[in-house]
Design a protein around this nucleic acid. Structure first.
Lengths: 206, 206, 206, 206
DNA sequence: AATGAATGAGTGTTCATTCAT
DNA sequence: AATGAATGAACACTCATTCAT
């Protein structure tokens, strides 16, 4: 590659890294392959990034930032929508996010299962999501003049394991599921919405 | 190590492999480390197993067999229990299983995210779980003389993403969660049961 | 293998070793394969032979002994035959020998090309053959009352490079030649005799 | 070694590989030793060559190409020389070739004895040599207005086993012979020429 | 900004050989 | 005489990373 724009080059490297990490895992990925696929010299990757590990960290940072931005936007636009319809909008936002980000989410999940990271990306993401959800709930209760319920711990657990977890699974297995059960993307999304509404949403709507 | 029993040695190797795979991932694991930790010569691992990969396959096979056995047992002992209490028993069985097997489940999940395996272990496990659950539901409806509801595809999606997925997450993040939020095992299990009952169980009980 | 006769077992091991050495070379051969092919436990090979190398040395020793025996016999039976016919008999003896022994000869040649052995088996074999040939020639000249010719060095060279060498090549490439040029064993042998007679034999017959 | 010229480095690696293969055989050779002897990092060998085996194939390819070139040149320059003298020139060319290439020829012979290669390098070389020789003979006969003799198969056999084979043996055992019998290079060459002339050359000169 | 060349430290796997029974 | 288990020392090959230009 000759004289491409520096920013463009870095972006290309990162997107190829994301692609390859998600295909073969971080440990399974080879810097040679990333370079080849990105059409750049291997040493150039080290010119832009300190190490293979920094590629990953950069991608994770970007994931966290995008997640934050998405959640903040959701919170702000929440008052505009209402009731059932409001939840569908929120749901669509989440689904769009995890679908679009599913490559790096897969990597984040795989890495989060290792016993090294003091605080895994997925746990961080979980914290973010849980807080956002609780904030939304609080507002909803407020709006209706209700008292926000008690046991916080249980709520956290619920948000993580029955709220976030299905979305993560969606990101992780959407493609395999579609291939395995012969469903197209839209159908799967609708089934998933239906299931999610009947379970998680129903459970904590006031 | 001298002339240990062959079966014992193989078992030791496998359990250490499981431990290490779950700690650093399959690709991150070193056969040297497995050998050292198991207290055997590295070559002995290759005397019993064709390759590092076969260690993994053996562990996965065992996981699938154990899962099948557990599900079959659950189905058979189902009639003995009833209603809410019955579900708690079932839930406890599942929780015990994923807790006990969480090391290899973590590995299975991480590996299932790679784009190689035609049918990932997790998808297989998903199929098993879904079938068992549907069978249970069908019996429950029958018992009460009700008609088993319609849309199969949606049911499958629900079982996988809101039924199995939280359990997988429990296996994956139980330890991190306890450490992060300062909950002990029993409390987490109870919160999780409470959340799971309110969401998934409530949703498809007749 | 259970309670086979010791001598039989050793013989089986040696013959399999010869077979495998000739197929993949000494360095390419694995003791495991020899054991498997011979139907014996690998450790048993070390019970009978000090090392893989000793297998080779045993085979080489046997080759040298057989070669000596063959040459001595030839010398002794020489007076019985005469002239052209006598040479054909001698030729047939040689051809039979190198054909029958071609497996170990291949190994001997391959090993002889390495720069370790102070005196390669092939050079030893060469010495044997040269001496025998010169002895035969001397007798032939004597019989006819002729004076045995002069330059010894040149004679040695001739016996080795145009006398022995074609026979070695025959042992080495007989099978490949038959396959490559679609000749059967008998035809090749006859062509070879014809060629050898016209060249080497003609050259030093009185 | 720092930033040597790439071509030079590849050449160095190849020549060291040739040296070591010829000393201890292909299977006996260690890539570590090649690297050390060539003064390069082992990984650099794999930067230039796919595998140890490719080193060998590269050397064999070069041998075949050089042989072709040598034979073509010989054929072209043949008309310039004549009769006995012409053959001496041809002989010298061959001797120079096999002497100069004897290292890789030894390796080629040793490898050709294994039962894997569908068509061994030596058999290929044999084909080349045979064709060239027959071409030369045909021209010689033509020049003298003679009819080129009949049985082709026998001619092939003769060229291979009494024409090429002594040259191969010369390449293979020249050094050992000189050491063993205390002859110097020139003397051996002359004896060999004398022997070859009396046998093979005499036999098929018109 | 970009690259071809080079390297140190692994990494899974193999293999001749030995041990204990 | 025979064997399953065990081992040390390699071995071919890999890979993240750096150097020189």
């Amino acid at each position: 590659m000759k004289k491409r724009d520096a920013i463009e080059t870095k972006a290309k490297i990162l997107s190829v890294a994301e692609e390859i990490f998600s295909k073969v895992g971080f440990d399974g990925a080879r810097v040679d392959d990333i370079a080849a696929e990105a059409g750049v010299n291997k040493a150039l990757i080290y010119y832009y990034f300190k190490s293979k590990n920094e590629l990953l960290k950069t991608l994770f940072t970007r994931l966290m930032e995008d997640a934050k931005r998405m959640l903040v936007n959701s919170l702000q636009s929440l008052p505009d929508v209402d009731g059932e319809n409001g939840y569908r909008v929120l749901f669509d936002t989440y689904i769009r996010f995890v679908t679009h980000k599913r490559k790096i989410i897969k990597v984040a999940v795989a890495e989060s299962l290792k016993e090294e990271t003091p605080m895994s990306v997925v746990m961080e993401l979980g914290g973010l999501f849980i807080n956002a959800e609780i904030e939304i709930l609080r507002k909803e209760y407020e709006k209706k003049g209700l008292h926000f319920p008690g046991n916080q711990q249980e709520l956290l657990v619920m948000e993580f394991f029955t709220g976030l977890s299905p979305f993560l699974s969606y990101a992780m297995y959407k493609d395999q599921w579609e291939a395995q059960y012969g469903v197209n993307e839209e159908a799967l999304r609708n089934y998933f919405y239906s299931a999610f509404r009947k379970t998680h949403l129903t459970a904590h709507l006031p």
